[in-house]
Amino acid sequence: MQSDDDSLPDADGIDRRGFLHCMTWAGTGVLWTLSGGLPRSVGLGAALAAEPTSAFSFLQISDSHVGFSKSANPDALATLSQAVDRIRALPSKPAFMIHTGDISHLSKDQEFDDADQIIREAGLPVLYVPGEHDLLDDGQGKAYLDRYGAGSRGAGWYSFDHSGVHFIGLVNVVNLKAGGLGNLGDEQLEWMEADVAGLASSTPIVVFAHIPLWTVYPEWGWGTSDGIRALSYLRRFGSVTVLNGHIHQVMQKVEGNIAFHTARSTAFPQPAPGAAPSPGPVTVPAGELGKYLGTASVDFVRGDQPLAIVDQPLIG
Rank of each mutant, 00 (worst) to 15 (best):
T28V: 10
D102Y: 07
A150W: 00
A143N: 13
H105C: 05
G280P: 08
N172F: 12
R16S: 14
L135S: 02
P39G: 06
D63V: 11
V250E: 02
F237T: 07
W222Q: 09
G179W: 01
L213I: 12
P313I: 08
Y128I: 00
A115M: 12
S159E: 05
V66D: 07
A194L: 05
N73V: 11
D304M: 13
Y128N: 07
W222P: 09
K177C: 11
Y128R: 09
A11F: 00
H248S: 07
E132R: 14
A49Y: 02
G179S: 05
S41I: 01
A72N: 07
Y144K: 06
V284W: 07
A267G: 03
A95Q: 06
T33I: 00
G280L: 08
T33E: 15
P125E: 12
Q2F: 04
G274I: 11
H21Y: 03
Q305P: 00
A76W: 08
A230V: 07
A122G: 09
F237G: 07
D146N: 15
T262A: 12
T215I: 11
G316K: 06
V42W: 00
D15Y: 04
G294N: 05
D113I: 12
H65C: 04
G221K: 09
A308L: 15
L48T: 01
V254A: 15
L38F: 00
P130L: 06
T24N: 15
R17Q: 13
G303H: 04
V173Y: 00
I14P: 00
A155T: 14
N175C: 03
H246T: 09
S62W: 06
Y292T: 05
G18Q: 03
S57E: 02
Q140L: 12
S7R: 13
H105L: 02
K70H: 10
A50E: 03
S62P: 12
G37Y: 10
E111V: 06
G256A: 03
T295W: 12
D15W: 12
R86K: 06
T262N: 04
A47R: 02
A150G: 09
S107I: 07
L231N: 07
A47M: 04
